[in-house]
Design a protein around this nucleic acid. Structure first.
Lengths: 224, 224, 224, 224
DNA sequence: CATGAATGAGTGTTCATTCAT
DNA sequence: AATGAATGAACACTCATTCAT
């Protein structure tokens, strides 16, 4: 069921709240522009970009940004949510549209790179709540989707069996992680190569014995 | 000839220099402590740590740090140099001490991870001179050493032939790149797994056709 | 046409500029207060006063100062512009209102002292662009005005002919130059005496042969 | 009796002090070099030059400077003393060697400019004791010498009678005051012209009525 | 509701002065 | 006695966040 992209975060707690009269069209557009600008700039310059710059790129005043996201953590939260959601969409698409299980995994991995999943890494640093329920839910949705891809590929005997979804997602994130201040087009030239090499290493039969133990996404959260 | 670690930049090679009277023991020790502290903290918190914190960790006043390194760029420069040098040493050790070519490469890659080669990535962002002659020389030394490892493994038919030294070093750096604000021991639990998966993907015979073209270290420099 | 005081640099000449929406009243007032405070403090303590102190005297936060003037040079620039402009106004007033040519020059010279023209001297030292077009234009306006005063006095045979406008302005600036850290009222007690002595020396007929050659304002700029 | 230059400040209180064994030749030379360097750099860059730079120009370590002059005030004190003393020497020379009283005054004034008497102005700002007995004595010596020049020129009817020694010295100092950061040779091209104009204004008969009252050097001290 | 302006706290860097060799 | 190194306090400037229009 692909394409089930999350809607705005604040909107949906109770649908029948008379005190939030009307989310005014342009206000929503502003909010969206801010998130988009933030995602781009976090990718390009790291998660420490001056928020005033984000506001400028979004074409709004800085105070508008702060009205929508009370502090940097809130904005990071939203961007993480958005990237996770879009990545999950890619996983679901790959699941739905690729017949071959390993081809599905491969397609997802490269698509996730294009979604800048690597940008999540540096964003997880700062003091923002990685255990926020909303985030947890989204992460679980992602994990489930990728879990499906992994399980199917394993069942088909195409994937080595000593790895888990956490391994895929962490390595993938690291390999696609942007270098702050570096224009992205250039780095892409290499990342898809490296992702592919990594995929080749994931393929069955295993060519080595891996140290440590396979990782889930929750392991990752606990790492912090 | 392993272990040829670079000594400090200022250290006089010729003892008979009348104009550099005496490099005073404690001053050198201080300089060394600063570089060490900086390396640790750059790895742990990223290259934007307050220099005052670095000074505190090194146990010196902030001005002492500035006496030795006029600005942040100079300190980053020195740390990059140090990490590069130590990594090269590991490459030379592996070359000298491992008979099997692929085992040598494997040993080097894991050793480089322990040297935190990934810490170089975020350090390359800021405004510091990536083309400094000293750095260039050291980078060339590293490239040559790894080039040797790669060539030998290829000749032995153990390494796929559509990759180059740049692919190894970039992917390696990315995979071992620290998450700012995250204690390292935890991350290590995973990185060596992922490095190994990547190595498995490098092994001959190639399991896929790679997109793009193989990369040298100079390609990387030019990416910026 | 006296009294044509320069207005603020940003002030829009054409009222129909859609992209500079509204110069907000209080912001302009703040800007003006900063310039005034800076002028006073530069005169009193020299051009090296902590900008935080200037901000405090202006009754604004330091960041407000930096918002209006990105660095010290920008603030100096504005103050130099203001002092030059006000001095020019005095010259034009004297020209317009005094019938006797030498009386006009005399009046201007004493008025320029009261405008603290001497404060310009120390401000010309630091690294700020003395050739900025805006400054150049204003300096030319001043030079022209004083040139008029000098020429008229010379034509009337009241001024010795071996001097030029640069001599007047430089000597005047030097004689009225403030002593950093000294309250101004005291120094005034003497400066007008010395200015007068200098004027007496300027009067025709010349009582000596001057060394060197007469100076224009551009000579002065080139001195730096 | 010209040439009676003051000897070093600290040396001569009592010649037979057993606890100050021997002022070691090189130590004295160092002290002298420091004062000379300081005089030059105060003139060239103002009295705020980093003392480390002064030490470097003097060719000694910074600590040597601090051994001789416990703080900046002490160094300024010494330089003021030296300049005052040398200026006095010029006054005494002019008195002794010039027959014509006004020629003597003229010669002195130009000579004082060459001694950079103007450098005293900015040095009087900082927190240093202008009433130090040593300084007071030297200032009195200068005042007496110039008083003599002025009195003689007045008696001869060559000097207007509504001025005093303070007027001469203050205006002279101001007119020859260096612009920090500006090479001196250039400024000289103008100063001697302006001094001459001022002298012409001093000449009898007076061409105007001066405001305020004539000033002594002690008036100047009190200004602060 | 949206904005530009204001703010204070934080960081990089310099310098006068003291300390250890 | 002389030196290079060390230090903390000061200042310039930036940025997240709040306020007034």
């Amino acid at each position: 069921m692909p394409g089930k992209t999350r809607s705005t975060a604040v909107a949906t707690t109770a649908p029948a709240q008379p005190r939030t009269p009307k989310p005014r069209a342009d206000a929503l557009r502003n909010r969206e522009r801010i998130v988009t600008a933030a995602r781009e700039m976090f990718v390009e310059f790291g998660p420490d970009v001056p928020l005033d710059e984000v506001a400028r790129r979004a074409g709004v005043g800085n105070a508008t940004l702060y009205r929508n996201f009370p502090d940097r953590a809130a904005l990071v939260h939203e961007v993480v949510l958005a990237v996770t959601s879009r990545t999950t969409d890619r996983a679901e698409e790959a699941t739905a549209e690729e017949a071959d299980p390993f081809a599905a995994l491969t397609r997802f991995v490269h698509a996730a790179a294009d979604e800048r999943i690597g940008a999540l890494c540096p964003m997880l640093s700062g003091g923002f709540d990685k255990d926020h329920p909303e985030l947890l839910a989204e992460r679980r949705r992602l994990e489930e989707a990728v879990e499906g891809l992994v399980a199917r590929a394993m069942s088909a005997g195409r994937l080595r069996t000593d790895i888990a979804v956490g391994d895929v997602l962490v390595a993938l994130s690291q390999l696609t992680r942007p270098l702050p201040g570096i224009a992205c087009p250039n780095i892409d030239r290499f990342t898809h190569r490296h992702i592919q090499l990594f995929l080749d290493g994931l393929e069955a039969p295993a060519r080595s014995v891996l140290p440590g133990t396979a990782a889930t996404l929750e392991d990752l959260r606990r790492r912090a």
